[in-house]
Design a protein around this nucleic acid. Structure first.
Lengths: 233, 233
DNA sequence: AGGAAGTTTCGGCGCAGCCCGAAACGTGCC
DNA sequence: GGCACGTTTCGGGCTGCGCCGAAACTTCCT
């Protein structure tokens, strides 16, 4: 019976300190053990033990760089598991009342953030809605497709989707990701990743130091309004 | 910070007894508290406590029927979380060596089983491969699409996909689900559910009592070969 | 009503796991 | 080399949680 394997994984995620570290790593970047200790609110020794366990289980991988050891999520699969996890966790029973702990950082996170390799939060959902409204993307049944019109629109906006080498399908597909703060789908998959890197490269969005949150630049604000038809940012 | 919520959910799944119960409920049917106690290998009182916690957290819902209380997964979302969970759990670190515990029941499970509302195991993967090989379905980037030829083929085989009322897209989409035993995708989503119920209704497959495993009937064996081009069952 | 079966509540036992202080190890800087 | 910093290992204290025995409660059957 593989219930033991499930339970092992559950125990790994079922510790506030470890959950906080994994949550912090969900933007796909690598953090040092010390930084993660601060994030988790525990002493460095404790964090070290947790990180060793997570790494041994294959959830994290480490890169040694001088006297630092940088930890990152082992793969996009892990990030997707965590996404699903957070979605269900935030949807299930609210009563415990941990919610009052919403600080300014959470506000920025809800506004716009990265979700491993794509955009989430109000901005991510708004972008997704805009593309659906313009007929560039269609969603159904936990899957999405980019229409012919959508391909043109994206190319025109400067977003390249040509990773043709790995693609078998004639039509570009994409994956929706249910947003844990908005409880509505946003764009994930290759399209989501392409949009996110495009926005960052063009300096329309900037990462907020030490957080998954994103800040819309002045240039970004006008591009969002004029190119993508999103006015509230 | 919502790491606490994540941790709460993780702890819920991080108990062998609870994991075993949830795993047993993944076929979407309802089981009584006593049955679940046996599955989990604990006393009825212990199971009762676990079930109360799972229900309170919104993972399960109960239906009272006489002196029995039937428990089932609260939603398809929960089933999907568990799928993802099992996939990562079986993919991560093998060393612990729990694997030798593979019994005859596991063999049947690997052969063919339900995955909440669709087919999984060798049969599920073979069916998926067959549809891809015939150009009925295309997969990429964690999403899938049924081609025009596929729609015809399915209609001809007697599988109806017309839940048009809830569908926004012009083309039927479907969702892939990574199989934890085969480590390859199979058909989930509406198409997967439609195929599964079709196979059961036509008596091509039968549920094995008290298990998620499925048995291929004689009729099913020939239909699989002649209609779907799958010979090994 | 009386009995049986299924389920839940209560109480106490025992183990597992988290946490931190202290100290060792490895690495970079002066 | 010597020092400082980041990280890991070891040991002990503490808490929390799962487990089951006993008993109450509900529902069905005769």
């Amino acid at each position: 019976m593989n219930a033991y394997r499930m339970a092992e994984l559950g125990l790994l995620l079922g510790e506030p300190a470890r959950a906080a570290m994994l949550s912090a790593l969900m933007d796909g970047r690598a953090l040092s053990a010390g930084e993660l200790a601060i994030v988790a609110g525990v002493a460095p020794q404790t964090a070290s033990g947790h990180l060793a366990r997570l790494t041994e289980a294959g959830l994290l991988k480490v890169e040694r760089q001088g006297r630092h050891r940088y930890h990152r999520l082992a793969s996009a699969d892990i990030a997707q598991l965590l996404e699903t996890f957070m979605q269900v966790a935030s949807a299930s029973a609210l009563p415990p009342g941990r919610s009052p702990l919403i600080g300014p950082r959470d506000v920025a996170m809800r506004r716009a953030r990265t979700c491993y390799d794509h955009l989430a939060g109000e901005l991510g959902v708004a972008l997704c809605d805009a593309l659906v409204a313009r007929g560039a993307v269609e969603f159904d049944d936990g899957a999405g497709i980019v229409t012919a019109a959508g391909v043109d629109m994206l190319r025109e906006a400067g977003v390249s989707l040509d990773n043709a080498g790995t693609r078998r399908s004639a039509r570009p597909l994409c994956r929706p990701c249910l947003d844990w703060s908005e409880r509505r789908p946003h764009l994930a998959g290759k399209l989501g990743a392409a949009l996110c890197s495009h926005f960052l490269e063009q300096d329309l969005l900037r990462r907020v130091e030490g957080s998954r949150a994103l800040r819309v630049t002045g240039k970004g604000r006008s591009v969002l309004r004029e190119v993508w038809g999103i006015g509230a940012f």
